[in-house]
């Protein structure tokens, strides 16, 4: 876990365990509370919301429904924002959604080279690697090499389509449904779908 500061072996009382940046954030919070700008209870709710309520399980349900309901898949292709909203996933960083369907001919992969734009309502907050310089710098120039970092090797004849999220349009990759899942329930299918598969740095496969 990079950039978390370091632990001290010695103890100078409360606060000595906090890294310089943790102390800065703590100081800023106390100032903003003192000035009446933020309610600490609202901060707790914001954190809980993105730790426990809004995360990649939402996106997995979208994918599973797309796999089992052709009318929904068609709606996703035409108007992903509305189709996803019909499942209750709306809001910040998901205002304008586009669904990208992987096929045997094409593989889609999403990045934000300029910051770390990410579809929060369906995937939650992005993982560190998505926000890191290695991913942001390399995804557009050598996507196949980046995929290898994730253990994914694509056939040469499969086109890789990279999507750089430079505006407020947010992308959700709909991975290919694995063979051998005929008749599975949406719930069982959703459990197979990983966050990385919905970014395009993973594929969905059956458990070994």
């Amino acid at each position: 876990m990079p950039h978390d500061g370091h632990h001290h072996d010695h103890d100078h009382g409360e606060g000595s365990e906090l890294s310089p940046i943790a102390l800065r954030v703590k100081a800023l919070e106390s100032l903003l509370v003192e000035k009446g700008y933020v309610d600490p209870k609202a901060l707790d709710v914001l954190i809980d919301t993105y730790e426990t309520k809004i995360g990649p399980r939402n996106g997995a349900r979208v994918v599973a429904k797309a796999w089992t309901d052709p009318a929904f898949a068609d709606w996703l292709k035409r108007d992903a924002t509305a189709a996803i909203a019909s499942l209750g996933y709306t809001g910040r960083q998901g205002e304008h959604m586009v669904a990208l369907f992987n096929t045997p001919e094409t593989h889609n992969m999403v990045v934000c080279t300029l910051c770390s734009c990410y579809p929060w309502p369906v995937l939650g907050l992005p993982p560190v690697w998505y926000k890191s310089m290695p991913y942001r710098s390399r995804a557009v120039i050598e996507p196949r090499e980046v995929l290898k970092d994730f253990g994914v090797t694509l056939p040469d004849d499969r086109e890789v389509r990279v999507w750089d999220s430079t505006a407020e349009v947010r992308y959700l990759v709909i991975p290919e449904r694995p063979a051998g899942t005929g008749g599975w329930s949406e719930e069982k299918l959703a459990a197979l779908v990983t966050r990385n598969a919905m970014i395009g740095t993973g594929l969905v496969s059956l458990p070994a």
Binding site: M1, S19, G55, D149
Partner: peptide, 21 residues
């Protein structure tokens, strides 16, 4: 690219507070 297995949403309390602030 180094992906962390079972990555938490926040890696330290200050990250969570910063996000919320």
């Amino acid at each position: 690219v180094r992906a962390e297995v079972n990555e938490p949403v926040f890696h330290a309390p200050w990250e969570a507070r910063m996000f919320a602030l």
